[in-house]
Nucleic acid binder design. Structure first.
Lengths: 342, 342
DNA sequence: CGCGCCAATGTAAACGTTTTCATGCCGATG
DNA sequence: CATCGGCATGAAAACGTTTACATTGGCGCG
């Protein structure tokens, strides 16, 4: 059926051990035999069986990534960053997605057992406790965008607090007082942090956060669009600026404003969060908070490798915060002279 | 070290065979013993080793995906579609990316050997011949966005010809005669097909394709932006419409036009290709060709599964073309009254 | 000249499952 | 009561590698 190392050994008239040694350059082999083995291997188009190799070596040269979803540019950037980093050390990527709840994550983690050397887990909607209990014993894991978790080798998060504060401060400097906020999904860790950040920053700036100005979304464009319409429909006091918890929603809100013929940034300012690639290509180009998502992924992968190579130092619940900085484009302007539009 | 099936067997006072039977429900086991085994397994938090399982079963319950890149929404949509389909049958995904040339693909394919049951390969820049020689014997493969390849179980492609014809016809109906085209990467199969489609459709519509109006890009936003500026800088005859070989470049070109204060669609019409999620969120919303990228991925995965379950029927170089239809949004208008701007 | 060492190779035992085959045992059947 | 058949279990052989250990020579050195 499929060609194995024994076939190569037989045809090259050597033992399987020698073939293995030649192929992995793991021990000296006489030039003549090496050449013969390589010749036969190439001729037979031999490729070692990964499972067998993993089993024998007790290392898979692969890392698993567990994600809640795969929709949108955030994940594609994240994966790209991860992939870039792990490929440098000859590893491959196992991706498992659409695991929102604790049970799903637990199943995914179990399925990875024995096929990967370590795990990158992003499960922002799963509580720390259930996440901790889902992590397997002997498998180092790095948590993305969630609080440090017992049992995890490390956790990487975005500086949500710093980012939100920068945004609110910036808007306040432009004269805005009525700043609305479009939330992310209720149980999402990042979403929560950004909401808290917004609240804190508002207070710090001496502004009042009004219940009606905090509307919720779920991180995708359409929910941003709905939230935008919702804000426009407000009777009475109206916001002069909208801060969306991520770019996708900001883009959606932008569309809603555009449809309603509300001028951005003339009549309404808008800010996003993440700086996904398209943020600079919408009109007006979106002012947002730059999070180097690919770097976030790469950093997490690097942390995982450290934990892999040095289990003691790596296991210490390391914690890394990647910076989030304001990038000003064209979606914000000074507070309109007449605070209420139309 | 890590807990194995023997540990479970020992503690439950049964043989490893029985444990395996309980865990896989592969043979009847007395209720009492089953309960005992499950209890012990849960208590020990036993998770079977994937590599061992794969080796023994001679099936991995995983499929490998080989991609040239991971940048942008196209790939994220594609992966999402694949993942959706695969997960329905309890498989997992092995992703390997940034393999542009034949050698890279070949290496990636070899690395997958023994860890996956089948392959989804997208290598639009690799010639059919070298791709064919990179494919391993016993591993069914489905090729994405490339001509049918000997040795592949199937190939899935986009109806580039139909899509481009629809665009050109639409623009011609709006009165445009000078339609520029922004190409994709030279060696890319899709890019080639779209360029040929554009040429053919232009001729079919009785329009002349001018060399100066065919500029090249490489499928990402920035190259579209550059191409847009290049077209604007043309002296003499100017296009009244721009057709970009993909959405990312169309978005880039849109930005260039916006920066140059050229009104879209008033002074210039623009069309993309792919219908990536953000296409509808740029302003003006992009008229483009809808390719259900996720469906493309899902379809390919489904084809692979068919080949897996029925090697004879599946191996027949099946070929599937996914439709591409024009979706009209707001980036195109009638040909301006004064054919040359400014 | 003999001893020991090193380099090159072979043998076989892991690695952790699944699965085939063998073995009890029990109840039904003649 | 003897036999047969199935059901539950156990023993052991796969699966395809890597690798620890054993076995050769050959060669330098005392």
């Amino acid at each position: 059926m499929t060609v194995t190392i024994r076939d190569v050994a037989r045809l090259a008239k050597v033992s399987v051990a020698t073939v293995s040694r030649v192929l992995n350059a793991s021990a000296p082999v006489r030039d003549g035999t090496r050449a013969r083995v390589l010749e036969v291997a190439r001729e037979l188009r031999f490729a070692p069986n990964g499972a067998a190799r993993t089993l024998s070596r007790r290392q898979a040269s692969a890392v698993g990534v567990i994600l809640p979803d795969l929709y949108g540019e955030f994940f594609s950037e994240l994966l790209r960053g991860i992939d870039l980093e792990i490929q440098r050390s000859g590893h491959t990527l196992l991706v498992s997605s659409s695991h929102h709840d604790a049970h799903g994550v637990s199943v995914a983690v179990r399925a990875m057992r024995g096929r990967v050397d370590g795990l990158l887990v992003m499960a922002p909607e799963v509580s720390t406790a259930s996440l901790a209990s889902a992590l397997p014993e002997g498998l180092p894991a790095v948590i993305l965008n969630a609080p440090a978790t017992p049992g995890a080798a490390a956790a990487v998060t975005v500086d949500n607090k710093g980012g939100t504060r920068a945004v609110v401060r910036y808007l306040a400097e432009l004269g805005h007082r009525e700043i609305a906020f479009i939330c992310g999904p209720p149980r999402n860790a990042d979403a929560g942090a950004r909401l808290r950040g917004y609240r804190a920053a508002m207070r710090a700036a001496g502004l009042v956060v009004r219940d009606a100005f905090v509307v919720h979304g779920d991180f995708n464009e359409e929910s941003g669009w709905r939230a935008g319409r919702e804000l426009l429909a407000l009777t009475g006091l109206q916001p002069t600026a909208i801060f969306a918890a991520n770019d996708a929603m900001a883009v959606g809100a932008l569309l809603a404003l555009h449809e309603a013929k509300v001028d951005v940034p003339g009549e309404m300012s808008i800010v996003g969060f993440d700086d996904i690639p398209i943020a600079r290509y919408v009109t007006p180009a979106l002012t947002t908070v730059r999070v180097a998502i690919d770097v976030l992924g790469a950093r997490a992968a690097a942390l995982l490798f450290r934990a892999l190579s040095d289990p003691v130092a790596g296991g210490n619940g390391h914690r890394k915060v990647v910076p989030a900085e304001l990038v000003v484009r064209h979606s914000c302007g000074p507070r309109p002279v007449y605070a209420t539009r139309r």
